[in-house]
């Protein structure tokens, strides 16, 4: 699903956020990326969704070499990847329904299709009941579930989540992780960036450990190393 070959990312004036990363993520995998702050986890995600371009190396996503991707091609890549960030990025003045609908509207989806898709994705995240609430009327965990629902509208084969539980307590964290596991079981490849030791240890899935921009660990039923 994701192939990184000799990836480096240099930031001016003198930081190598990533150095010679080689990584192969198979379709259907659930992989966690861990590491201390400033070791390049977010940079890796940004390269995968083409928000940044690598200084060196090659990136292939689902067979598509996006190393030299054109600006006008980026939207097509983004429609194949679900993205979830720590800060929720929900629109405060829109309801749950409208927030999810906004993503589809922006991509030119016709109205009848939107009305079809939204209950499906809200069912996956368990929020069918709260479709007309505003974000301020939802808990942090629920808000993050709306973001996940929104990331699912294009039925992506790949979901990347950068510290989706960063702002949540342990109960909400467990719910979100369980949700990601369920999405993974439905066939979507999941890349999870996290700081949470407990999460990683309970998952018992593949763990990549980054340090100083380099991979220092890659275990198939991994535990949090650092």
């Amino acid at each position: 699903m994701i192939k990184l070959k000799g990836i480096s990312k240099f930031y001016k004036p003198n930081i190598y956020a990533l150095k010679d990363i080689n990584l192969d993520i198979a379709p259907g995998e659930f992989i966690s990326i861990v590491g201390q702050s400033g070791t390049g986890k977010t940079t890796l995600i940004r390269l995968v969704i083409a928000e940044e371009k690598p200084t060196e190396g090659q990136i292939v996503i689902g067979g598509w070499d996006i190393t030299g991707i054109q600006t006008r091609e980026i939207p097509f890549l983004r429609r194949q990847i679900g993205v979830v960030f720590q800060d929720f990025k929900l629109l405060k003045k829109k309801t749950v329904f409208e927030n999810v609908a906004f993503a589809l509207e922006s991509c030119g989806t016709p109205k009848n299709k939107i009305i079809n898709i939204i209950p499906q994705v809200l069912k996956i995240v368990g929020l069918e009941e709260k479709i007309d609430r505003y974000p301020t009327q939802l808990s942090g965990g629920e808000q993050q579930r709306v973001v996940i629902a929104r990331s699912l509208v294009h039925k992506p084969r790949l979901l990347v989540a950068d510290e989706p539980t960063g702002n949540l307590d342990s109960i909400n964290t467990k719910e979100i992780i369980d949700l990601l596991k369920r999405i993974n079981e439905l066939g979507t490849t999941v890349v999870l960036v996290t700081h949470n030791r407990e999460v990683v240890n309970n998952l018992r899935k593949r763990v990549i450990t980054l340090d100083n921009g380099q991979i220092i660990g890659d275990q198939s039923k991994g535990r949090y190393l650092l």
């Binding site: 969704i49 939207p75 990025k89 906004f102 993503a103 991509c107």
Partner: peptide, 17 residues
Amino acid sequence: REEIGIMKLVGASNSFV
């Protein structure tokens, strides 16, 4: 900017943005 950020993240075409 929030709307624009979301639009780009979910793959709205450049002309739509």
